[in-house]
Design a protein around this nucleic acid. Structure first.
Lengths: 193, 193
DNA sequence: AGCTTTTCTTGCCTTATGACAAGTTTTATT
DNA sequence: AATAAAACTTGTCATAAGGCAAGAAAAGCT
């Protein structure tokens, strides 16, 4: 019996017919990235997106003082996409970099458009995925205003423990909007130091 | 000669055929809100969205300490929608309230779905609108981390001067993630006090 | 294994912003 | 116009978090 394809976890049998799956899944291309590879660089326009089968990545922007700020983390099952650049066909401000070796499944814009306009369930899911990203970003944004750094860290620990465990402190710090120094002190406080 | 319909500014002739416009525009229903009316309340699921022809509104969430945090402002030409609640059909955490009397054009979820799945240009535009919202939110989110309060205020002043002119200080303050006291001092500093 | 580089921790001091409270100005209501 | 209610300003003091620098620990490299 054949091993089920990773993408069957992304496109589930209860939302897609067998025929649709046979149409969608072969359009994705397996791509492997090595640690530190860039999937997207500032100034370029993103023409592909990926689903992560294995590995970790992060996106970041560089601020006016040259410091980088992590905008997102990606791990198994996540979609790696710069929504704005991909759909508006604009040069991006973001960089997306593999933090470990990664196995991904890639789809290009033209193929996406074909599936999006051709298959109702595909566009329903695409919309849902985008809205979920919007939801996460909104929550993070509100948390930046409503919560202190300690609280934001606790939420991350609860929501994405695998990120906290696998990503370096400095990247997590900029994601949470604190310095690495402060985050180190927060960790000390939590561990009861 | 007939006055052009407001929605012709939203659905422009270069992106929609005459036939499509005749199909889309009559589906919207004119709705008038009075100052302080709620368009959406926490706990409810949003079943309509609106384009603003005239007036101002804001959305906000209430944090764990009972303070409200403004998440967005809406004015002429803007879409008023809670993307998450509308598309995921979930109860919302947001409140949307008219800050002045408002004239809006309303579309319900079922009619939206019909147009979205039936008209290619309508779904292209819908996707673009959502991505633009994502872009704004991302910029605001990065600015919360990268910029000090003074800088965030200057950006708002530059990007949305009509908001700064028409909305009360306390609402702008929570939107920028500062107290009204601090924002008052920021204004003093800018005016050269 | 030894060396280098990166990551993380800790101390000391500074700074942006918050908390609270009093007063002033503006807006709404009768 | 008079009163009440919001909105805004300003002062004093408190605090979360940053800046900088030194050192410790861990990871990567030859």
């Amino acid at each position: 019996m054949e091993e089920p394809h990773f993408l069957n976890h992304v496109f589930k049998a209860d939302e897609f017919s067998v025929e649709e799956l046979e149409n969608i899944i072969p359009k994705f291309k397996k791509v492997v990235f090595s640690k530190n590879d860039y999937l997207l660089e500032e100034g370029k326009t993103e023409n592909d997106y990926w689903f992560v089968e294995r590995g970790f990545a992060r996106s970041y922007v560089v601020d006016t003082e040259g410091k980088d700020i992590t905008t997102n983390f990606y791990s198994e099952g996540d979609i790696i996409i710069d929504w704005t650049s991909f759909f508006l066909r604009n040069p991006t401000r973001e960089n997306i970099q593999a933090l470990t070796d990664c196995v991904c499944w890639q789809l290009d814009f033209n193929t996406f458009q074909e599936l999006f306009h051709g298959i109702r369930s595909f566009r329903e899911q695409g919309r849902t995925t985008l809205v979920n990203s919007y939801f996460s970003l909104k929550n993070q944004s509100v948390s930046m205003i409503a919560d202190q750094a300690l609280e934001r860290y606790k939420k991350l620990l609860k929501d994405k423990p695998h990120i906290v465990q696998n990503i370096s402190l400095k990247h997590i710090a900029t994601y949470l909007g604190v310095t690495d120094t402060s985050l180190s002190r927060i960790r000390k406080e939590i561990s009861g130091g």
